[in-house]
């Protein structure tokens, strides 16, 4: 009996040493951020536990130009932080992939509250979204494989994949999950509007009036607190005759979806110009003019826009003032989301 006790004791010590050792290697879980008063987000991290190490890996990948075929484009070259991760001042972003010169790059924020990604809702999960910019349609694989080849040769990546996922294996699934940990963590909820709602700051009379105008004329589609209801609608833009983009219809194959696009969030709208799926408007003034006088009648036009939306000069002016309260400068400048410093060794200690 003594002997058995001794053996099991040795086993126990060995095993606990092993467990402790393992524990040191386990990535550190982070709680996804859910701002006060917001609806429940989609569980985008259900099969991809959000961790500090996974997030940092995703961040590095997001800013890495080697993800493109020719080494010139990173995700961040089209998704710029100071523009809420939209492409600032370009109707169509430049890129290696013609597919994406046909749409305006949207902001990346609060993506856990978005049920279907892209202007036409063609992408159903945040993890598979990057496949779209990284490859051309129907020509999968060659690019992803060569991206993975590049990453596998890099000792820093090897270490980061190991820290995030337990082993040095670098495959598409892990790369995509890491990117999703970064993009899915981009939460913007600290604009002046938010602080006003939380009672931390006051609106001036112009902002208050603009808010009233907004609630009366825009909130049916751009509803609070996310400033979108995430539905697909035709807001009366005439068909762009160059790119001939019919939006949701391409995905659903249904004529009732012709010219319908996902209602975009208006958070940070003050810094994400140009606007609309093709970037046709360069100012909020032009956008409001569209709703006032530019609505194009068509069978799929949203019924609430048949008559256009009437504005007095003052209403228009104050509405723009209000829309600018949606800019969240802490988000635009948050160091956590900016390019990692390439020269510092991996900061993964806690």
């Amino acid at each position: 009996m003594k002997f058995i006790t001794l053996i099991s004791f040795i086993l126990f010590i060995a095993a606990s040493a092993f467990i402790i050792h393992e524990e040191q290697l386990l990535p550190h879980l982070i709680q996804p951020e859910v701002p006060k008063g917001w609806p429940k987000p989609n569980n985008i991290f259900a099969t991809n536990p959000l961790t500090e190490e996974g997030f940092q890996l995703g961040r590095k990948l997001f800013y890495d130009e080697r993800l493109s075929k020719d080494g010139n484009f990173s995700c961040a070259s089209c998704h710029q932080q100071f523009a809420a991760f939209a492409t600032y001042d370009h109707d169509f972003s430049h890129g290696f992939n013609n597919q994406f010169t046909t749409r305006n790059a949207p902001s990346l924020q609060n993506l856990a509250w978005v049920p279907l990604y892209h202007w036409d809702g063609g992408v159903n999960h945040i993890e598979v979204q990057p496949l779209s910019p990284l490859t051309a349609p129907n020509e999968m694989a060659e690019n992803i494989d060569s991206v993975l080849q590049k990453l596998r040769k890099d000792a820093v990546y090897k270490k980061m994949f190991k820290n995030a996922f337990g082993t040095e294996l670098i495959n598409s699934q892990r790369m995509l999950k890491a990117l999703a940990q970064f993009t899915g963590s981009l939460v913007s909820a600290n604009s002046k509007y938010d602080r006003f709602k939380n009672g931390q700051e006051k609106f001036n009379p112009s902002e208050l009036h603009g808010y009233e105008v907004f609630k009366a004329k825009c909130a049916t589609c751009h509803n609070e607190p996310l400033f979108t209801d995430n539905t697909f609608r035709n807001n009366g833009l005439p068909l762009n005759s160059f790119i001939k983009d019919f939006g949701r219809m391409r995905i659903s194959n249904e004529s009732k979806d012709s010219l319908k696009f996902r209602v975009p969030s208006l958070r940070n709208v003050g810094v994400t110009q140009p606007y609309m799926h093709d970037g046709r408007f360069y100012s909020l003034g032009q956008v409001i003019e569209h709703y006032r006088t530019g609505i194009q009648q068509s069978p799929t036009l949203d019924s609430s826009l048949r008559e256009g939306i009437a504005f007095t000069k003052l209403e228009k002016y104050d509405l723009i003032i209000f829309l600018n309260t949606l800019t969240d400068t802490t988000f635009l400048k948050n160091k956590k989301y900016s390019a990692p410093d390439g020269n510092t060794p991996l900061v993964l200690s806690h």
Partner: peptide
């Protein structure tokens, strides 16, 4: 090479 990226 059996996955659609623009329409998941």
């Amino acid at each position: 090479d059996m996955f659609w990226t623009w329409n998941t």
